[in-house]
Nucleic acid binder design. Structure first.
Length: 563
RNA sequence: UGGGGAAUAGUGUAAUGGUAGCACGACUGACUCUGGAUCAGUUAGUCAAGGUUCGAAUCCUUGUUCCCCAGCCA
């Protein structure tokens, strides 16, 4: 229900939860879970799942568990656990007491496995991995029963115990469910439940040398935690019959698995495997590189949790694959940042301006609005003096049509300061414009002309003597193609990496920015939103460009070039 | 050629037998001390063909296209 009492359209997952709540199917409980494997950093696709699971719990008065599905010691690390916890919390969600680890249930899972063996529904198999594949058959041909399929319960119990005790080498045996080797769903052809892996687990150490497979572990984890709705992605649809089979055979508490489509975004890749390659092969500087679609990268880039949550709300939830336009993410970003970011002035590519009729040695402080969208943000003082920097692209000696900014003889406004008119252009020997001379109108102090005359442009600027120098990183998308996987023969997504995804400049900032703290977000007026880098320090400030402002002039230029 | 899913403007998503709507994008225009924001408008869609019905995106039939599955990964 919305605030006005009208019925809001529910996505198909919420529709199921709503119906179950109404029918009291789960005694009125709603318990979801977000179950990441700690083998990589969370990305925007995970954020979709997080917002779905935690969002549903919040909306229906339930709870959402954060559970690490840590059943593969060879790929999982504590570093990933830590980053995941930080990211989910940063996104604004709270799991209360409900932080769980699949590995905490290993003993229970073992006992359940024994129960299944005793029921004649599981057996120890001596086939090698390759042999198992051969016996499994193919998509169109049924599999065959293996030689160990009809071992006695006693022998299975004995062997399974010895597996646990570490009496067999890695890969020598498995415990398998006894279902149907001719089943049309390959997942049902006697799936492996346990494999032998003598590996150090990040939480259980060397206590175990057999580890449960996903299909066996996941349903039990859900069951133990009394989950009501086990929401996962589409590729697990084929696994649902197995999820159901295990829990039914065990007679255990049985949540409902519901599958939804994972998120795809234009101009980026989303699989952990590909993100890992970007990191390992040095295309980016780490999991939290601001060009990465990881939650940590986006945080460092300057995204707000609110923007990400709003994005996740708007993209909806469905059962078919789709690719969301990056422009929607950026829209949600700008929408939030516009309301919340302090405005400041910064010049990225400085062009010196001398105000000839402004007294040498004089300076003054002018009042500037911190956020026109939020009167509560107040005002600040910005120093003005005879020598200033403006943006190189705000001046053209021979302005084309529709260029409203500064040009010889033209008057523009310096924001919050004065109207100035360009009187002279100074060039170096190579013909590059290196300095401008202007005159100002003292009567326009603050930026308003008492005689009511208008100018067509307002420029941002900084006082040269007061400017703070900073490293500013200008990010563009990491890939040049909407679909990075669209690569030529013998190429992969790395062939579409944007060579210009990062440009670093030395910018001149207004002095108020000297005290910016890491992750502080600002709007550099007329340029875009910028975020103090996590490693930014007083004395050596570093800012990352989060996203540019919408830029009508850039669009006109693009159009002019194309004609 | 086995099984499991899915198809609505360029993109994302509503409409569950009763006017195909919303958002993003794109394009106009208004306004503006950010060529920002805001406001107004334009653009454009039911995978196909049959059928049921007074009426179909929705139900039925046939077809087409796309996604997932042959890890001792999750």
């Amino acid at each position: 229900m919305q605030e006005d009492g009208s019925q809001v359209n529910l996505d198909f997952v919420r529709a199921i939860v709503a119906a179950d709540s109404k029918s009291n199917k789960w005694d009125g409980r709603v318990v979801t879970r977000f179950p990441p494997e700690p083998n990589g950093y969370l990305h925007i696709g995970h954020a979709k799942s997080i917002c779905l699971n935690f969002g549903i719990a919040a909306e229906f008065g339930g709870v959402c568990h954060l559970r690490f599905d840590d059943t593969n010691p060879e790929k999982e690390e504590q570093e990933y656990v830590n980053s995941i916890i930080e990211d989910v919390r940063w996104l604004g969600w709270d799991w209360g007491e409900h932080l769980y680890y699949g590995s905490d249930y290993f003993e229970q899972m073992y006992e359940y496995a024994v129960q299944l063996i005793k029921a004649g529904k599981a057996y120890v198999c001596d086939l090698t991995a390759e042999q198992i594949r051969e016996y499994r058959g193919t998509l169109t041909e049924p599999g065959r029963d293996g030689p160990d399929r009809n071992r006695s319960v006693e022998e299975n119990l004995d062997l399974f115990e010895k597996m646990r005790k570490g009496e067999f080498p890695d890969g020598s045996r498995t415990l398998r469910a006894k279902i149907d080797m001719a089943h049309p769903n390959l997942n049902m052809r006697d799936p492996v439940m346990y494999r032998i892996v003598h590996a150090e687990h990040h939480r259980t150490g060397d206590k175990w040398c057999i580890y449960p497979m996903y299909d066996w572990a996941h349903g039990l984890e859900d069951s133990v935690e009394k989950i009501t709705h086990s929401i996962c992605t589409l590729e697990f649809e084929n696994h649902r019959p197995l999820y159901d089979w295990f829990l039914d055979e065990l007679g255990a508490y049985h949540p409902q698995q519901i599958e939804f489509a994972r998120l795809n975004l234009t101009y980026t890749v989303m699989s952990k495997r590909k993100l890992l390659r970007l990191v390992q092969e040095g295309y980016v500087e780490g999991w939290d590189d601001p060009r990465m679609p990881t939650v940590s990268g986006m945080r460092r880039r300057g995204y707000s949790p609110e923007a990400i949550r709003e994005f996740c709300r708007r993209i909806g939830v469905n059962k078919f694959n789709s690719t969301v336009d990056m422009a929607l993410l950026e829209h949600c970003l700008r929408e939030d940042l516009n309301k919340t970011s302090r405005r400041v002035m910064a010049v990225l590519r400085p062009l010196k301006v001398v105000i000839d009729n402004y007294p040498e040695g004089q300076s003054e402080e002018l009042e500037a609005v911190n956020n026109p969208e939020d009167p509560q943000a107040g005002t600040r003082k910005v120093p003005f003096s005879r020598e200033l920097y403006i943006e190189q692209e705000d001046f053209m000696e021979e302005p084309p049509k529709k260029f409203f900014r500064l040009a010889p003889g033209r008057e523009v406004r310096l924001r919050y300061a004065y109207f100035v008119t360009c009187t002279d252009v100074v060039k170096d020997e190579a013909g590059n414009i290196v300095e401008l001379h202007c005159t100002y109108d003292p009567a326009t102090r603050g930026g308003d002309a008492p005689d009511g005359r208008k100018v067509k442009a307002t420029l941002h600027w900084v006082s040269a003597a007061d400017a703070v120098e900073a490293e500013v990183r200008l990010y563009e998308s990491l890939f040049t193609k909407e679909n990075p996987d669209e690569a030529g023969e013998g190429e992969d997504f790395t062939a579409n990496i944007n060579p210009d995804s990062l440009e670093t400049v030395t910018a001149h900032l207004e002095p108020s920015l000297a005290g910016a703290e890491p992750l502080d977000r600002f709007q550099f007026e007329r340029l875009g939103y910028f975020c103090a880098d996590a490693g930014s320090r007083a004395g050596k400030p570093v800012f990352n460009r989060t996203v540019t402002l919408r830029d009508a002039w850039a669009k006109i230029q693009k159009g002019q070039k194309n004609t």
